[in-house]
Write a protein that binds this DNA or RNA. Structure first.
Lengths: 224, 224
DNA sequence: ATAAATATTTAAGACTTTTTTAAGACTTCA
DNA sequence: TGAAGTCTTAAAAAAGTCTTAAATATTTAT
């Protein structure tokens, strides 16, 4: 179930919003000031925020900026002003959408579901998938057909890095720096060895399937 | 570079949109009917679509539904009607956002960049195009009609260099120094051999199509 | 029309990069 | 501290790409 933070200082509107959201299957949390909203957000766990611009404590714009510094969550801004300057500025600051008060309930719900749709797709943020590999980011391992592969730390991190951008070719340089967090010294065979072992482990569970492709002279990528 | 399909039957508005997008660093493609838009989309490679509702051939709503059957690309709908019924329905059908005509250019740009922001990470669609060749700069390969060509490193780099300036004629000297990063020794046949192999690989997927033209005594260029 | 210059193709071997293996160093956990 | 597993290094084997060279084809200039 999707949780939504409702940052709106007008008690009546806030309650009304929460009720509307509840009726439509969401789980809202109320915040009545900018600072309260930030407190809630620090607890984490929200899928979206509805943010009024005129908030005591911190204004909506300030909240918007602070949230955007660390989070990519969908934010719909409520504003009393419909003028172009404001709205363009809001979008540039990182709002995903806005509604002008007084807004229509159905439109709010429609825009909410549009925003949540995109998170729903990327949603499963605890796993990555490629072909039949499911990478369990929390369990630090991968499954093929529900059987654990048994990855070591480096193997897991290499696979995670590559599965994050499955169309991209990763140079050894890039992989080394991402996984080891250290400068790559060129004449090193270490990536090759890890890739080899990774392939061996994957092949043990799915013989004949190619998951990691060699791009000669460039590096490796997911594919087959 | 982001590519945007502009589906709008009003020639004036379409041109204006394309010009606006070009000026702001996007690469627009025009479609003047619903059916034309779908044809373009089948070619693939678009990062976003701006879709007018009133289109000949197929209406915007029909296009919207067809696209959503297979794609998650951002779609901003243009509509003359501002009524709630219409807009809510559009969002439910899968539009990511809409603008009411006459719209403001800055707002269009702001909303465009909001939509592209979410694809930005995954799809930093670094591709080059020439005719039906799509060069995938991150994947280090080219596609013709969605079929991978399977380029070697040097072939890829030669093609990349030439496709970066599709109107320019490249001397062997120039190509050698750009791709090999080394001084050209004149009596060298190596460029010719690579061009030959490149042509052979392209021709295997698109028989009879000329992609790389020989400019006698000078060098090579994209064209045909 | 012919010669000269330039381009194309082919095939083989040189060369580079990748893969695999194995042994020892290192880490982690109890 | 000892055992188990993981990581790194090194080196040989394998695989793929690049280059060379030579033969063939095409275009340009005379």
């Amino acid at each position: 179930m999707k949780t939504i933070l409702v940052a709106e200082d007008d008690t009546f509107i806030n309650e009304m919003l929460c009720e509307l959201l509840t009726q439509n299957g969401y789980t809202p949390t109320s915040a009545f000031s900018g600072t309260e909203a930030l407190l809630h957000l620090r607890q984490g766990g929200f899928d979206m925020m509805i943010l009024d611009l005129m908030l005591p404590g911190k204004t909506g714009e300030e909240v918007l900026q602070e949230v955007r510094a660390t989070s990519d969550m969908p934010i719909i801004v409520l504003t009393a002003m419909a003028d172009k300057e404001t709205t363009v500025k809001l979008l540039r600051l990182g709002a995903d959408d806005y509604l002008v008060k007084p807004f229509d309930n159905d439109e709010l719900l429609a825009r909410t579901s549009v925003q949540l749709r995109r998170t729903a797709l990327a949603a499963d943020n605890s796993t990555l998938k490629f072909k039949d590999i499911i990478l369990d980011l929390e369990g630090y391992d991968a499954c093929i057909g529900c059987v654990k592969v048994g990855l070591s730390k480096r193997e897991f991190e290499i696979l995670k890095h590559m599965m994050s951008y499955p169309n991209k070719v990763f140079s050894k340089n890039n992989l080394y720096e991402s996984v080891w967090g250290d400068e790559f010294m060129g004449d090193d065979n270490i990536i090759n060895v890890h890739i080899s072992k990774l392939r061996a482990k994957l092949a043990a569970l799915a013989p004949g399937v190619e998951y990691i492709k060699t791009v000669w002279g460039i590096g490796f990528k997911m594919g087959g």
